[in-house]
Amino acid sequence: MTRRTHYLGPLTDSSRWDAVTLRPDDVIVVTPPKCGTTWMQTIVALLLSGDPEVETELAIRMPWIDIRHRDIAEVTARLDAMPHRRSMKSHTPLDGLPLDDHAQYICVFRHPLDVHVSFSKHVRNIPVPWFDDWYPQDDRAGLTFRHFLEGAPDGYDCDAVPLAHILRHYEAARALAGRPNVALFHYADMTRDLSGTFERVAALLGTPHPAPLMARLAGVATFDNMKRNAARYAPSGGKGFMRSDSDFFHRGTHGQWQGVLTDEELAAYDAMMDARLSPEDRFWLENGAGRAVPR
């Protein structure tokens, strides 16, 4: 068995997966934060149930295994008691997860700069003080973006989502993309063609539904509908964890980093991306299969 990388941050611990007994039909959504995790989990919940009115309750029914706030014994007991097909989420790169030959791993990526901008907004919406040094309220010195470029892919830094952690996620997923049970999706492609995303996920999960029902399911998972019903679709929505459930769904666009960063910051980002990725891999990680966002 290949030795797994241990990712341990102030918020997450990948060793918690040791307590989970995987089933062959499990579905595991694996993403860096703010890449469309909740969106993909909702798509999976809709397709597994075939019910546009399904109560997703992602934090309970499709738990985030890595997070250290929940007692792992309680989480695994809840999972073991589920008689239906299960789904879980992880923000750990695939090289830190147990890899079952039959469970389905769905990896979702997004332009790293969009991730950075979205996560910067997200930390203002959650009562978690660990990110204050990385994301100061008054950041006229540009510390936040420096941390993004200089942070490590593992250790304490990983939960703050530096670029190195996003690249580790992508490289680990690309290394396993030849496996039939590992699939890569891109946020921009999901935005451009949500119906096509539903069709692709349904094929992976073996959950076909008649075309009229597929259209209804896709209608539920639009950004506007999820934001409008944020208490239902946000993680722990309606429980007061976030300052605003609606703000969890901030903008949902591709290219929202434009006009936010300086030329010097963009040049430093370009240099790091070009040093780590081939032009083809960089294009896909930033844009998916679609057209590049002009600067």
Rank of each mutant, 00 (worst) to 15 (best):
N181E: 15
Y269P: 07
P83T: 01
P32M: 05
F131V: 04
A164Y: 04
A203Y: 08
F249Q: 00
I72M: 13
I166H: 00
I67F: 09
M226S: 03
M82V: 12
H254Q: 13
Q137W: 13
P93S: 07
G237K: 00
V201Y: 02
P129R: 08
I166C: 02
P33M: 08
L167K: 01
S14V: 06
V201E: 00
D66E: 05
F131G: 01
P24R: 02
R216W: 04
R291N: 08
D157I: 01
K121Q: 15
V123R: 00
H102G: 13
V27L: 10
E55N: 09
R216T: 06
D101Y: 06
P208E: 02
E286K: 10
L113S: 02
M214G: 01
L143E: 14
F145L: 03
A267H: 08
R232Y: 00
D139Q: 08
H91K: 04
D13E: 12
P63M: 00
A175R: 05
M273C: 08
P10M: 11
L194C: 09
P112I: 09
N181W: 01
A172Y: 00
V293T: 10
L22T: 08
R140T: 15
D80I: 02
V161L: 07
F283Y: 13
W17N: 07
R168E: 12
R86Q: 10
P127R: 06
D80K: 08
P24Y: 07
V201D: 00
D263M: 09
G255D: 11
A289W: 08
G238H: 10
K227D: 11
P10V: 09
T37I: 02
H6V: 15
Q41K: 13
R179I: 07
P32E: 06
R282E: 14
P98A: 12
Y135D: 03
D100P: 00
A271D: 12
M226R: 00
Q41T: 09
G290Y: 03
I126R: 05
F283E: 14
A173V: 05
I106T: 02
A289R: 15
A211K: 06
M226Q: 08
G96D: 02
G259H: 04
V115F: 01
D100H: 10
P93V: 06
E74R: 15
L163V: 03
A177H: 13
V128H: 13
L99W: 04
D26W: 01
D157K: 04
T37C: 05
A141G: 10
A59N: 07
G96F: 00
P10W: 11
A177D: 08
H250Q: 13
G196A: 04
T191M: 15
R70Y: 11
A231R: 09
R276A: 14
R3G: 11
P33D: 07
P210F: 07
